[in-house]
Simulated assay, not measured.
Amino acid sequence: MANIKDMTTNLHHRLLILSAIVFNIACGGKNTESNVKTPGAEKSGKDKALEAAADVIQDKSPLSAFNVYLDGFHFYNGNINAQMEAHHYVQQLSDDLYQAIIFDGNSKDAKIMGVEYIITEKLFQSLPAEEKMLWHSHHYEVKSGTLIAPGIPDKAEYELMEKLVNTYGKTIHTWHTDQERQLPVGAPMIMMGFTKDGQLHPDLIRDRDKRFDISTPKKKAQRETIPFGHVDPLANAWEKGHIRQFVIENKADSAIHKHQ
């Protein structure tokens, strides 16, 4: 009986994710342009022809597995006033592990800003103390309504958020398009998520809500009944003044990245 119940629950979850995919395709995107224009000359006719041929011939299995779309907000670890919207395209690798490609928009010209790895509380507790300080919790993003899954039915989004509320994310941005960087220059940056009211700039929420025709306060109210446990005190380390960020040191034959 337990196995049948587990199979039914798993099937129900997969159907919800399937509905999320269908609704995302229908009405959950193509309303947010990239922050920067692509530098360089226009693609040649030959390049376009090669792309068209490759699109038909080549297998893209890894990309096709990124089938859930989340929209939220990040800030640079150590600088909470440097905030931006982040469009996540997510693949669930297991019941405890997700990976996401982060874009600065959801249109075809969107730029890849970075990546995020998402793990459950169970996996987070297996990490050493120093590693935990690189991660942020998702409890506030979920409960506040600032993290959304555009275009999917409220019930499907609610159940998805139930799974995400107790997870943790490790996020690194490599292209700082929010600073109107035309190219992916500069050091990679560790990002953090918001943890309480008053931190996220209201204009970012208003602009996002208008584009997606949603209400963050309404989503917050809908999620009041989502339960969540405690947040590990080593996560969101920036709140206690423990900032971790990349430093690039020039050496004779290499560039070494290390944490402060």
Rank of each mutant, 00 (worst) to 15 (best):
I248R: 11
M189A: 11
M84S: 12
A237C: 03
M161G: 06
Y89T: 12
E33I: 07
Q179D: 00
V22I: 15
F75L: 03
K43P: 04
H12N: 15
D96G: 05
I102A: 03
A100D: 11
P184M: 00
Y168C: 03
L127R: 07
P188W: 04
L11G: 10
V68P: 11
W135C: 02
H259P: 08
E116A: 05
A252V: 03
V36Y: 03
G151I: 00
Y117Q: 04
K5F: 15
E159M: 09
N77C: 05
G105Q: 06
D232E: 06
A255P: 07
N67Q: 12
F212L: 14
I256P: 11
D95V: 09
I25G: 09
A156W: 10
V115N: 13
H88E: 12
P217G: 06
N236R: 00
H257T: 13
I4E: 15
Q179C: 01
R14T: 15
H173K: 00
W135F: 07
D209P: 05
S64A: 13
T177S: 02
H88C: 09
N77K: 05
N10C: 12
K155I: 12
K60C: 10
A54F: 08
K111H: 02
D109F: 00
D71I: 07
K170H: 08
E130R: 00
E224Q: 11
T9Y: 10
I205H: 04
D109T: 10
D47T: 08
H259N: 06
T225Q: 11
T146P: 05
S107D: 15
P128I: 00
S19H: 13
E159F: 11
I172S: 11
V165L: 03
R208W: 07
I243M: 04
A53Q: 12
L200D: 08
S107F: 05
A100Q: 08
L127N: 07
G169N: 00
A221G: 10
E121C: 02
G40F: 01
G241K: 10
G72F: 05
N31V: 15
D197A: 07
E249M: 08
N77Y: 03
W135M: 01
Q182R: 01
P217D: 10
K143Q: 15
A26Y: 06
R181H: 09
P217E: 09
L164T: 06
S126G: 14
H230L: 06
L160S: 04
K251M: 07
V231K: 01
W175G: 03
D95G: 13
Q91K: 15
